[in-house]
Simulated scan of single mutants.
Amino acid sequence: MEPLFEIIHSSISLQRATLQDTESLFELQKKVFTPLYEKYEDHETSPVFQTLVRFKERLNTGDFYKIMYSNSLVGSVHVYAKSPGVMRLHMINILEDYQGNGIAQQVLSRLESMYPEAVKWELDTILEEERNCYLYEKMGYVRIEDRWKINDKMTLVHYAKTANLNRMKAL
């Protein structure tokens, strides 16, 4: 799919989500993950089936951000400290019309700079979603051999990225 427009990175911002954002972010998550659910028929782990109560709990765990483009909500991202120095990118979701325009790259770069204490970042993604794997690898993440077969159509893979030691020394 060709991008509908070129994203100007200075128009992208991350805004901390609040409880008032719960319903709009919950609906956004369902909208983003419904096509993946339909493709992979993941009845067990799909965010499509997350309850509003569980979503609200997650909103209060770690840091949850709205991804804004020119003051419009286009996605969200959830990160939390897994252990001292290890940050977990739990979920990033961007509306389909805005995918493929560099937003995720910009969000990842900004998140990494917002958490200078992180010496390692971790995430999971769908192995069969080649664009996601390409993105994370392009951003310096390395695929770890951990795999979780969800069903015959879908496997989750684990990625990790170690912080740049030169950057850490400069801090």
Rank of each mutant, 00 (worst) to 15 (best):
I7E: 11
H9S: 14
S11H: 04
L14P: 09
R16C: 00
L19G: 01
L19Q: 05
Q20P: 01
Q20V: 09
D21H: 12
E23P: 00
F26K: 00
E27H: 02
K30V: 00
K31N: 00
K31W: 00
K31V: 00
T34E: 14
P35A: 13
Y40M: 09
S46P: 06
V48S: 09
F49N: 05
V53F: 11
F55R: 07
E57P: 04
T61E: 11
D63N: 06
M68G: 03
S70D: 11
N71A: 12
H78N: 08
H78K: 08
Y80V: 07
Y80K: 14
S83C: 11
P84A: 11
P84L: 01
G85M: 10
M87T: 02
M91S: 14
N93S: 13
I94K: 09
L95M: 14
L95C: 12
L95T: 08
D97C: 10
D97Q: 15
Y98D: 02
Q99P: 02
G100W: 01
G100V: 03
N101M: 15
Q105S: 15
S109V: 07
E112N: 12
P116M: 04
P116C: 14
L123E: 08
L127W: 00
L127Q: 09
L127S: 04
R131H: 11
N132S: 11
N132K: 05
C133P: 03
C133V: 15
Y136K: 09
Y141F: 14
V142T: 04
I144T: 10
R147Y: 06
R147I: 14
I150C: 06
V157D: 05
H158G: 00
H158S: 02
Y159H: 04
K161H: 05
N166V: 12
K169Y: 11
